[in-house]
Design a binder for these strands. Structure first.
Lengths: 212, 212
DNA sequence: GTCTATAAGGAGATAGAC
DNA sequence: GTCTATCTCCTTATAGAC
């Protein structure tokens, strides 16, 4: 293998590992499978990483950081908040259907972290990224729809992520797109109730009280 | 080891395997760990099961069948449907907090099935049990609260399970009980909207339209 | 029927040749 | 710096003694 900086090797191995995990699951991501995917000899692995766990840790860190990128571009301008949420959910769902293995991999990595003492801080970091991304999408959507959230946007974001996680698991289990669509309809309805017109006259009109 | 019928051995090994999986994860459930937990010599394993995969398959089947048992006893009589749902969610959540490893194990088994060709029918079976259990609880709750569901109860059940899955994952990641409580409040609010008083005069009164 | 002992292979990690 | 060859341990599964 040609000369390569350690940093480049680490990056290449992480990408290769991610491909292997998507294809074969966390269980299949052995050091041998990873170096084969990266086209490197086995010894290069421990030249770049101290251990397999170190790579997994870096991998989750990378994935969690880069995952919150491509969101919020799907939001239709000029739409009501209910439609915006529904469209955003659909965009996510289309991505899930196109690449189910990726979402499966995210779940597996979460559970792997939960079972590995040294990685116990990662699940929270992973979900924090989800929540932050969701909050940012919800803020953009609210602004475009000229509404505001009655709850802190971070809480609405958590609810949105709850829907998405539950939706994803159910679809992975039964691959029923129509049932998923109904779940998304309900999620959009329920979340839209948490928004109100931006003028503050409006709150006298809302009659769906949210108990806290 | 004393005489034991093959059926008894299989049952004992499955229970031992479940304990190991809860403690150490699916990854830790090696044949050696399982027989050690069951107090059997290694050879007994393959005397009772053809392979490790056969045991895992039987284990998931058993778990999925027996899991829908202890529900619906928590429903408070004489309560409104919103309160009943909220209480039911709390009962589940208390169980989750008391034994997080059990729920973690259920997720891991789901993902294991998704990654194993021969087990591809199990995820759907697992969720079908969840849905069926949820539907049964929702029916009992509606009856007690003298309301009826505006949607087929199977669909409401799917939404409830969506909430529970999402809620569980988030709590496993960040162990924030207060945030979980807020999610449960929202879930109870949102699902209660799907019920209406049993008298059929009532539907003119509901003003939360559910788009389909 | 039961269990000890072992086969056969895959895993992470490394020594040492180039 | 790089990689081949190997070490050591752990896995599933089985052969064969009792």
């Amino acid at each position: 293998m040609a000369r390569m900086s350690v940093a480049d090797r680490r990056a290449a191995l992480i990408l290769a590992a991610l491909r292997v995990i998507e294809r074969d699951g966390v269980h299949g991501a052995t050091t041998r499978a990873i170096v084969a995917e990266a086209g490197m000899p086995l010894a290069s692995f421990h030249y770049a990483f101290l251990s397999r766990d170190e790579l997994i840790r870096e991998l989750i860190r990378t994935v969690v950081e880069t995952e919150g990128q491509a969101a919020s571009e799907t939001l239709s301008e000029q739409a009501g908040i209910r439609t915006s949420i529904r469209d955003g959910l659909q965009a996510y769902f289309d991505l899930l259907v196109a690449e189910p293995n990726r979402e499966q991999a995210m779940f597996e990595l979460l559970h792997y972290s939960l079972r590995t003492e040294e990685l116990h801080d990662l699940p929270k970091a992973q979900y924090s990224t989800y929540w932050k991304t969701a909050a940012s999408v919800l803020e953009v959507g609210a602004k475009a729809a000229r509404v505001q959230w009655k709850l802190p946007v971070a809480e609405v974001a958590r609810l949105l992520v709850t829907f998405i996680s539950g939706l994803t698991l159910a679809w992975l289990a039964d691959r029923d797109a129509e049932a998923a669509a109904r779940t998304m309809d309900f999620a959009a309805d329920s979340l839209a109730v948490l928004a109100e017109p931006i003028s503050d006259l409006a709150d006298a009109k809302t009659n769906q009280s949210i108990e806290r």
